[in-house]
Structures are given as structure tokens and as C-alpha cells.
């Protein structure tokens, strides 16, 4: 494990994440500092006395200069103290971690789904360029990237939950009954699928063009000249080379799925981070928003490092 981390490439990527993470914290802090009005008034309501407001401001450290506020906030965060959510009256980090768990299950499943489906669709499409399969896939993909995921989710509830009664309409767990893996899958199927549709379309489009690019290369002709069966030419030779340009897009789509989960969580009443953020925004629960956004962004940065490392294993030319 230690040797793995000390691999120079991985180490380099980890170190390069530090300024990005700092930048993220600055941006989030700056956005929140832009908020018009006074957070203390927002918390206490408009009937609060000026004395109470001043006391709370001092309590929250809001009477200090901005730069100092930022470093206090950052220092606390580094020690795992994201502050308290005033609306929920519990530590932000506890709430975020609990909600993140649910989002991770949803977004993770969707990410796996969209990666597999998208790549398969793209490869099949490219291998049958201008054939009926290509045309059908291209049309479905266009439909997929044009439909709002929240509308799709609503239509899925109407069809598969209300009319056909195949899946439960909302929530993560049954209200009564055991919380086992089957119950989870039952609840997860529709939201995960609805969330993956757009990303599947994007990945399929990109995989198709990456494959077409690769299929013109000389080494594909070499594979054919060797007598490799066309299946092997497509799925072994061409896809392996196309993955080099598909993987970075998977990284981008992971961010899309992670943040697009907001809509799906609202539609399917999924107890995730996105829904928490929307509620927090509507309640003006600033610390909770700050904490949630920084947390998700940081996770995404680390996920992108994982993508880069995966890329370096997939493409031996990157290794230094």
C-alpha cells in the first residue's frame, strides 16, 4: 500500500490536488461571502433584536475580517469541524456523511451503468457505422441527452411504479420490512437508471467517435492482416486503444452523475446529499451548503486522481 502511494506518478497527482482543493475552498468561501444581508439575521429571523444579532455574529466569528474568517473556517474544516447546521441542530459533517452515503450508492450505481451501457452502445454503433443498429442507437442517444432527467424520472414513476407496480415509487428503504440488499436494489433500480441516461448518451457518443478514430489506424490493419477475427479487432484492439480517450470522459461524467443526482434525489425522495443541499439552500442554512459543496467537490477531485491513475495503468506510454 505504501509503495503504491509512493509511486512517483501517483504521488505527483496527489500533491497537485492540494492547490486545487485550496482553490475550491476559496471559491466556495468567496461565493458564500457574497451573500447579501447578514447570516445571523437569516438564522435568527427578522424579529431578532440587534443585540442578539451582534452576539451571534461574534459567536460565528463573522465580526472578524474576511481573510481571517477564511483561515479559521479552513482550519476548522481540516480538523473535521464543518460547523453546525442551525436548521438541523447537528454537526454539518455528521449530516453530510450520512447523506453522502445514500448519494454514493445512487451515483455509484449510475456511474457503473452509464459506463458499461455507454461504451457498449458506442462500440456497437461504430462497428456498424451507418447500419440500422448505428441509426437506432444514435436516435436513442439523442433522445437520452435531450430529455430532462427529472421529467424522465417522473414518467418512470408513472409507468413502472404506479401503473405496472414493478418498483416502489420513492425512497431508499421500504417503510416496513427488512433493509436487505434486495430491498435496496428494488428501490435503487429506477432512480439509478434515470440518473444514468444522460451520461450514457454522452459516453456513447464519445465512444463511437473515439472508436471510429481508432479503427482507421494502421495497427487495426495489422490486426486484420494477422487474421484476427473482426470481433477481436473491435473489442480487443480498437476498444483497448479507444479507452485511452474514453477514460477521461468517464471522469467528467462521474462529476455529472454525482451532481445530477440532485434532481433524481428530489424526484425519487432519495435521502441523499443533493436533496439535502436543495433543502438547505431554501432554508438558507449556509454552513450546511458550504460543507456539503466542499465535501462533494473534494470527493470529485480525488475521484479524478483515481481516473488519472487508472489511465496511467491503461496506457503504458504515460508511465514515467
Amino acid at each position: 500500500m505504501l509503495r503504491f502511494i509512493l509511486n512517483p506518478y501517483i504521488l505527483k497527482r496527489l500533491i497537485s490536488a492540494v492547490p486545487v482543493l485550496l482553490g475550491i475552498s476559496v471559491i466556495v468561501f468567496a461565493i458564500m461571502a457574497l451573500i447579501p444581508g447578514d447570516p445571523a439575521t437569516a438564522i435568527l429571523g427578522s424579529y431578532a433584536t440587534p443585540e442578539n444579532v451582534a452576539a451571534l455574529n461574534e459567536d460565528l466569528g463573522l465580526d472578524k475580517p474576511l481573510v481571517q474568517q477564511y483561515f479559521i473556517w479552513l482550519g476548522n474544516m481540516l480538523q473535521g469541524d464543518f460547523g453546525r447546521s442551525f436548521a438541523l441542530n447537528r454537526p454539518v459533517l455528521d449530516e453530510v456523511l450520512e447523506r453522502f452515503n445514500a448519494t454514493l450508492i445512487l451515483a455509484g450505481t449510475s456511474f457503473v451503468l452509464c459506463s458499461i451501457l455507454g461504451i457498449i452502445a458506442g462500440v456497437v454503433s461504430a462497428a456498424n457505422q451507418y447500419g440500422w443498429a448505428d441509426k437506432a442507437i444514435t436516435f436513442v442517444v439523442l433522445l437520452g441527452i435531450s430529455i430532462p432527467s427529472f421529467f424522465l424520472g417522473m414518467m418512470m414513476i408513472l409507468t413502472f411504479a404506479v401503473n405496472l407496480r414493478w418498483f416502489p415509487a420513492s425512497g431508499m428503504w421500504p417503510i416496513y420490512g427488512s433493509r436487505d440488499i434486495w430491498a435496496l436494489i428494488d428501490h435503487l433500480a429506477m432512480p439509478a437508471l434515470a440518473l444514468s441516461v444522460v451520461a450514457t448518451g454522452v459516453i456513447a457518443r464519445l465512444s463511437r467517435s473515439a472508436m471510429l478514430e481508432v479503427l482507421r489506424q494502421d495497427f487495426i490493419r495489422t490486426a486484420r492482416a494477422k487474421g484476427v477475427h473482426e470481433r477481436g479487432v473491435i473489442w480487443r484492439h480498437a476498444l483497448r486503444a479507444a479507452m485511452v480517450s474514453i477514460i477521461p470522459v468517464l471522469g467528467v461524467q462521474a462529476g455529472f452523475v454525482l451532481s445530477g443526482a440532485v434532481y433524481i434525489e428530489v424526484v425519487f425522495q432519495w435521502p441523499g446529499l443533493g436533496r439535502m443541499l436543495v433543502d438547505a439552500i431554501l432554508r438558507r442554512d449556509i454552513l450546511l451548503v458550504q460543507g456539503g459543496v466542499v465535501f462533494v467537490a473534494a470527493c470529485y477531485v480525488f475521484f479524478n486522481i483515481v481516473v488519472d491513475v487508472a489511465q496511467s495503468y491503461l496506457d503504458p506510454r504515460i508511465k514515467t
Binding site: V20, G23, I27, V28, I31, P36, S259, V289, V293, A297
Partner: peptide, 24 residues
């Protein structure tokens, strides 16, 4: 560098943060 920082955010999350600051 600044642009890269902004791109490090998952897309919709940044929009949410901005709306959170400016209000609905």
C-alpha cells in the same frame, strides 16, 4: 488555473452554490 479550479467542481454543484449565495 482559475478556470481549472472552476472545472474541478462537479457541474451542477457549482450552480447550486451560486444560487445558494444569490438566493432563489
Amino acid at each position: 488555473r482559475g478556470v481549472d479550479m472552476l472545472m474541478a467542481f462537479p457541474y451542477i454543484l457549482l450552480a447550486l452554490a451560486i444560487v445558494a449565495a444569490l438566493g432563489p
